[in-house]
Amino acid sequence: MKRRALQLVCVFIVIYAANFFLPRLMPGDPLQYTSAVSGEDMDGGYSAEQREMLRSYYGLDRPLGEQFLKTLGQNLRGELGESIFYKKPVSQALLERAPWSLWVMGAALAVSLAAGCAAALWCVQKPRADRAAYLVFSVLAELPAFLTGVLLLFFVAGRLGWFPLSGGMTPFLEYTSVWGALADILWHSALPILTLALGMAPGFFFTARASFLTALEKPFLLGAQAKGLARMRIRLQYILRNSLPPLRAKAFLSVGRAVGGTVLVENVFAYPGLGKALREAVAYRDYPMIQGRFLLSAALLCISLFCADLLGAKAEGRELG
């Protein structure tokens, strides 16, 4: 595991350096991009003198190597710098948004894992149900998340009005209790979570199905059936329990997909979060924000990969032991 940890640290260092240099090597300038996007007015631009003053303020006039060392020093002290577009500390901008994204990602992962496994468990001993579920999940797997999101937005939120069209909570509402606030947050996040979960559930279904089918062929299952144990007990204690390692690994490996999916889902539902911030940071070439945002994703992915490996190694050890 030490070797694996070292590998991940090396990966992280490479990603860290790429996060710093790639945005700066891309064409575009965070201070020169002046409302010239189609549909925007041509005001709001900085004069040449002001641009130079701002370049100096943000340290963009320094050589790239010097900027890198300064950023590294800042990051090691736990600072992520100042966002050029949002005009606030990057850490503040990320902290404002991270809870929303983490909630949607975490909930979507949990829902899709539960739904995928439950469906697989339910179908695994029923050939007709299995064929139907296989078809449904195959279709879901091919549906892009943004399309699912738009369909839910127009029909479930727009037409039926069961859920809000956008946002993370009702703006400017004064809640009378914590429960009221939590219910509102749950209500607003239902469709973003459902959209993301529908995209991830097929992965869990197919992984679980394959694992369950393998477990079905194991001799211990025959023993359990011969004992006359209840079907539910067999499913939970014998099939599910013995198929957990690949599902755990799949869950951790799905974090990357969830991170990517939130970018689309947050944009469709105008849901607050890191996905939207990433799109804006890249569009406006907000270097410190791009770095901070990718740093967070890279850390999240490396940690989840490490956890997957750790759990895998433990399970392997148990099996060997």
């Binding site: 937005l153 127009f154 727009g158 009005g161 069209l165 956008s166 946002g167 993370g168 703006p171 400017f172 469709v268 539902f269 105008a270 849901y271 607050p272």
Partner: peptide
């Protein structure tokens, strides 16, 4: 005056 998060502007106006 309130600026509220909106996914689809026209849908939000109609609603």
């Amino acid at each position: 005056i309130q600026f509220v998060p909106v996914g689809d502007e026209l849908l939000a106006f109609q609603n």
